[in-house]
Design a binder for these strands. Structure first.
Lengths: 146, 146
DNA sequence: TATTATATAGGAAAAATTATTATTTACAAG
DNA sequence: CTTGTAAATAATAATTTTTCCTATATAATA
């Protein structure tokens, strides 16, 4: 490992007992520095410019590792391709049915709402999340012009 | 086609201009008669007992056709494999993070809540849906016993 | 620095979905 | 009822998405 001081991500990994590898750091940074909820493939494509030998398997493997350690989330969508985010603060999503763009939103009025008591008999509810879907501005524009 | 009176599903297809094929009917019936939000593969396996020659492609193709006509929904999940439902009445989902079981729930207090006005600048919002996730009763039991 | 367990690359494999094409079927018009 | 035609199907192949395998490399530690 380099002599330089540990940055925030390295500390995060260290605290979890995760080995600090270049690939792992870059994958995590790529996610943390983006707001478009990228796919594994997209992160792979992005990192290849600076790490030409990284493999897609490594991207997938580490996305799962990070997810298992609660450092990133897989977004709940209606597509087959997985989408990820590093934004761990509770929030919600707007998803465009056409271009699949995902936008983070906050909705405090919803956050205050407690799920009905009887849901608890189902089991142990850990998260509550809203997904709003529709057609985004850009896609509405494209529709009109055709 | 048989002489018997059209059943509800056949009428539904006819109204949409969809051809009434045996495969299409069976796929739709399988979905309408289940509450477990099956995968394409599961529907395929189920139908093969009565229609041994049906192909998986036909199942996928018709699931998309039905979805495009608004007769079924693809469920929004965090898995890669697609899950479908024929329950079109507005409702929400409880998803187990372990066994991936999906349970329909209703939450009227949420349904009454209108999304904040400023979400509208994003585009045209068509649906709002809550996904609650956690660990179901059965999986909690399994966890304890290990 | 040497040791050891974990992570990686690269290729192959598996899982999930969609496309291609020849054949069959629904259904409407005669 | 027969026939014509567009649409749907089965079978197979191809893609896409994700995971596995294994030899090598690397991070953490002693």
């Amino acid at each position: 490992m380099q002599k330089k001081l540990l940055d925030g991500f390295e500390k995060t990994f260290q605290m979890r007992g995760l080995r600090i590898t270049q690939q792992r750091l870059e994958i995590f940074k790529a996610l943390a520095g983006s707001s478009d909820h990228p796919t594994a493939e997209k992160i792979y494509a992005q990192l290849r410019s600076t790490m030409p030998t990284i493999s897609l398997d490594t991207v997938y493997r580490n996305l799962h590792t990070l997810q298992n350690h609660g450092l990133i989330n897989r977004v709940t969508t209606g597509q087959s391709q997985a989408r990820f985010e590093a934004n761990l603060t509770p929030h919600h999503h707007l998803i465009c049915k056409i271009c699949q763009k995902i936008t983070d939103i906050s909705w405090q009025e919803f956050d205050k709402l407690a799920p009905p008591q009887d849901f608890n008999q189902w089991g142990d509810i850990k998260e509550k999340q809203v997904t709003l879907s529709g057609i985004c501005r850009d896609c509405l524009k494209d529709k009109k012009s055709s």
